[in-house]
Amino acid sequence: MTTTLNWKPALRHVFMILFSFLMVYPIVWWIGASLKDSTELSSPGIFPSVPQWENFTKGWNSVPGHTFTDFYLNTFGLEIMVLIATLLSCTLVAFGFARLDFPLKKFWFSILMLTLMMPGQVLIIPQYALFHQLGWVNTYLPFVVPHLLAGGAGGSFFVFLLIQFIRGVPKELDESAKIDGCSWFGIFWRVVMPLAFPAVVTVTIFCFLWNWDDFLGHLLYINTVDKYTVGLALRMINDSQSAAEWGQLLAMSLVSIIPATLVFIFLQKYFVDGIATTGIKG
């Protein structure tokens, strides 16, 4: 990772800035559009002549009887439960598949992969019927419980991802830990997890993001507005059959990506300071 030539960093920065701009252009357009009123949206300019800040305040209160504060609290509550459930279950399962040998392991692993590959559309109705019979409709259980069982939005994906990463952790570390008297759980917790930390961060980011965006899942299982998540509330602003409040919609959806962006900004530094780089000694 050493750089030998001096012009290289400079060139890299120029390239990165240009490239970043290309990737960030949408947010610029988006900020502009969220400040426009409906009459200006069709005009080509990026920024409005008079910024409509009230798109944000009105949008925040646009659902009768509730404000977006409620929806954010709901969503954060759901996200925290789902994140904890996912991290607990997926790491354990991945460790089991990656490090332990047991009868039928290959078979179960193929099944795990199969669940990744199955087009989800035909499963929606039977699954709904099941959760309905369990009396879980209009609660957060249809999200939390599957995640606790390494399923839900992204479950098998996370397990597969973690397996691949754990396989990258040298096995002789397990062995020496074993000799030191560590149990399997000790190896999992003290040896493998710290080394697979970048992967755990990755799973955290994806899990947060996908559950934030899981519109259809939320729509199917949450009925009453007092339990609505941000994603559901957003779609309420936009009803295709009536005069749409585009400005408010864009403003609120812009706000809705802030949490995910913050999560990413906060966690991405672990890709630099990842323990893995320093944890392995030759």
Partner: peptide
């Protein structure tokens, strides 16, 4: 990497 469930989120349309 669009996850399937997430894709469904836009069944919307």
């Amino acid at each position: 990497m669009l996850k399937w469930k997430r894709s469904l989120s836009v069944l919307a349309m």
